[in-house]
Simulated assay, not measured.
Amino acid sequence: MENKFTFRQFWELSEIYTAPLNLFLILMGVSIAMDQFDWGISLDLFLYGLILIIFHVTANIFNHYMDYKNASDQHYREVTNVIGREKLSLKFVRNLYLICLFIAFLLGVWLVLRTNIIVGILGLIGFYIGLFYSYGKHPLNSLPIAEVLTGTTSGFFIPVIGFYLAIDGKIEVTPFMIFEVFILCLPLSMMMFNNLLANNTSDLEEDVKNGRKTLVYYLGKKTAVSVLLIVFAISYLLLPIFVFLGIAPWPILILFLFLPKSIQGLKIYQQKQDKATTFPIVLKTMSLVMIGYPLLYFIGSLIHQL
């Protein structure tokens, strides 16, 4: 490493600014438990949140590391990837993610010892997908299943563990409960899917140069954008259905107040898929649901308790 490692470099390498989204995913699971069953905020939930943030940082550092090593496009290595652009030492980056991974693993073991093996199994699946997203000869981020697999893992696995920890052994968790959590978390999984789809749509040319054949490679940009818009529409249509069925509180419908602005932003993205200018619009649009949905569900759960 030629220069001193700065916080700005860590900020970009770890993408820690996206880590708080994990806390809203946990909030979703807690809110479902709060709305329908007995629940309680415990040390286990705080420990789980800490593990997620550290592992989120670990996975992002590791992804940048592997993308740099696997890249065949010189421009990507020297200009696009933060490691090459900032001239960071590969050894330093590797050691950094190994330290973070070790800390997350130790905290994960502690959480499993405090709870049970079910939490451990779900956690290991999450660890595996997070690390193998960019590892190996054919990493997940170069395959057409990456969007669906990662979206489901983040949008469902994180909330369901939060739900399980919030229940805290007060009642027996049944397969039907888990299925209901899965259904209620579909809007979150869909938004995660859309984020990855938009990212890969914007990076299509660069991905092709580096040998990545994502879902967008097979769909084409035009179809990928259409899929994104359809998935976005379905996620919003689910909200009134949840309320009508009585499985979600009415405050989640407040999200519809922001729908016109979201549609306006997506129309701009539909015209041009660019990583620097229009992709951030998609991130903001999807993040609105990923933050607003759990938050409004939580508020509704509080109202239900009154």
Rank of each mutant, 00 (worst) to 15 (best):
E2T: 12
K4R: 14
K4H: 09
T6S: 15
F7Q: 07
E12K: 13
L13H: 07
I16C: 05
Y17K: 12
T18D: 04
F24T: 15
L25S: 15
S31H: 10
Q36K: 12
F37A: 02
S42C: 01
D44Q: 11
Y48W: 07
L52K: 03
I53T: 04
I54Y: 01
T58N: 00
N60D: 02
N63R: 03
M66D: 14
A71D: 09
S72A: 07
S72T: 15
H75A: 08
R77I: 09
T80Q: 07
T80E: 11
G84T: 05
N95I: 04
Y97N: 09
F105A: 14
G108C: 02
W110S: 08
T115F: 05
G120N: 06
L122M: 12
I129R: 00
L131W: 02
Y135E: 06
N141K: 06
S142N: 03
I145M: 10
T153F: 08
F156A: 09
F156T: 04
I158E: 00
P159I: 10
P159N: 12
A166Q: 07
T174E: 07
M177C: 05
E180M: 15
I183W: 08
S189I: 12
S189Y: 10
S189T: 15
L197F: 13
L197K: 06
S202I: 01
V208E: 12
K222W: 00
L228H: 14
I230N: 06
I234N: 11
Y236F: 15
L237W: 14
L238P: 09
L239Q: 11
P249D: 06
I252E: 07
L253W: 12
L255Q: 10
Q270C: 06
F279N: 09
L283Q: 15
M286Y: 08
S287N: 14
L295Q: 01
F298Y: 13
I299L: 13
I303S: 04
L306F: 13
